[in-house]
């Protein structure tokens, strides 16, 4: 079966242009991340020995010429300017109570970039609202401040084009919804359904090389041994959880967005512990005493057990190599 491309998985934003022949001179379209453009005609150019049919457009903001190959019109996410009724829905979304912002900057940045490309005007509004609510928690870093500004620019331009009002008035509308004056309440309707973002395969780095990253070789330790050093009951629990986590990881490739997300969370949360530990270990001059303490932490144990599961046990050569060094730590019985 042919795998679906991210574009088709992502669903489609309102007004997405799938047939380039429907574009006529004078049409107003939105090029994701570029803004509102006006189609001026078609063109044929020879580029690198190939004759390409191009759609010629002019960006309304500054008159810049934009050329898109006809074959790529749908894949770049070119769409019609949102309708007035859809824009009203966007305002109801902006004025609604915002969910907690995503605090992991990597996920947030990637999702926001996807929303700007595939999410349509509601996706742009999601970026503006998400970063706006995050700015209440802490000042935005420079890159996200720029992203906030550019997404606001795109949103204002499209609202202005759709409602036929000057951009500064469109911006007032946006902020009137986001930050209403004291005493103003709105009667809100359900907002439009947001476009689903592309499913990311292998969205988390699986913790399979935990032992090497931890630098346990230097200490003559193995993860399995550390788990055994802790409380017996906790070790058993860790084993069970590990199996679950391993199963979830295995299913990640097949699962949809919901399960993939959940499955992806577990290793991602474990990873910071794994990264932080070598530094701590280097700082600590007495590794023999430090190791059992860290092994006793239940969440670390679970993560290691998830990473180790069964396959690590079947590494006799490594174990044999390390065997002479084990008595030195004196922790294993």
């Amino acid at each position: 079966m042919k795998p679906e491309s991210p574009e088709t998985e992502a669903g489609s934003a309102e007004g997405l242009i799938s047939d380039p022949s429907s574009l006529k001179p004078g049409d107003r379209v939105v090029y994701p991340n570029q803004g509102v453009c006006r189609v001026t005609g078609a063109d044929v150019q020879e580029i690198a020995g190939q004759k390409l049919e191009l759609v010629r457009m002019v960006r309304e903001e500054d008159g810049a010429a934009v050329l898109i190959p006809r074959a790529k019109v749908s894949s770049v996410g070119l769409r019609r300017v949102a309708s007035r009724s859809y824009i009203e829905g966007v305002f109801h979304y902006l004025a609604a109570q915002s969910a907690d912002p995503e605090l992991d900057w990597k996920i947030r940045h990637r999702d926001n970039a996807d929303r700007l490309v595939t999410g349509g005007v509601l996706g742009v509004a999601e970026v503006v609202k998400g970063l706006h609510s995050l700015s209440h928690i802490r000042p935005l870093p420079t890159k996200e401040r720029e992203q906030y500004d550019s997404s606001r620019h795109l949103l204002v331009a499209e609202i202005s084009a759709s409602l036929g009002v000057p951009p500064s008035v469109a911006e007032d509308y946006v902020d009137y919804a986001l930050m209403p004056p004291a005493g103003v309440t709105f009667k809100l309707k359900p907002p439009p359904r947001p476009v689903e973002l592309p499913v990311r395969f292998a969205r988390r780095k699986p913790v399979v090389k935990a032992e090497e990253e931890l630098g346990l070789d230097d200490m003559g330790l193995e993860l399995g041994e550390l788990a055994e050093l802790g409380e017996g009951a906790a070790a058993e629990e860790g084993g069970e959880k590990g199996e679950e986590a391993a199963g979830a990881e295995g299913a990640e490739g097949e699962a949809g967005a919901g399960t993939g997300e959940e499955a992806g969370q577990a290793p991602a949360r474990a990873a910071p512990h794994a990264k932080a530990r070598p530094a701590a270990r280097k700082a600590a001059p007495a590794p023999k005493r430090a190791a059992p303490k860290k092994a006793a932490r239940p969440e670390a144990k679970r993560a290691r057990a998830a990473a180790k599961a069964a396959p690590r046990k079947a590494a006799p050569a490594k174990a044999a190599r390390k065997a002479p060094r084990k008595p030195a730590k004196g922790g294993k019985r």
Binding site: I87, E88, F91, H92, A95, L163, V165, P166, P167, S168, V169, E171, D172, Y173, D175, Y176, A177, P181, V184, F186
Partner: peptide, 19 residues
């Protein structure tokens, strides 16, 4: 006065031609 938007008319302290 500004033209009313989908959620009403925002308070107008001024107006400018953006850019």
């Amino acid at each position: 006065a500004l033209p009313p938007g989908p959620l009403g008319e925002p308070p107008a302290w001024g107006f400018s031609q953006q850019g």
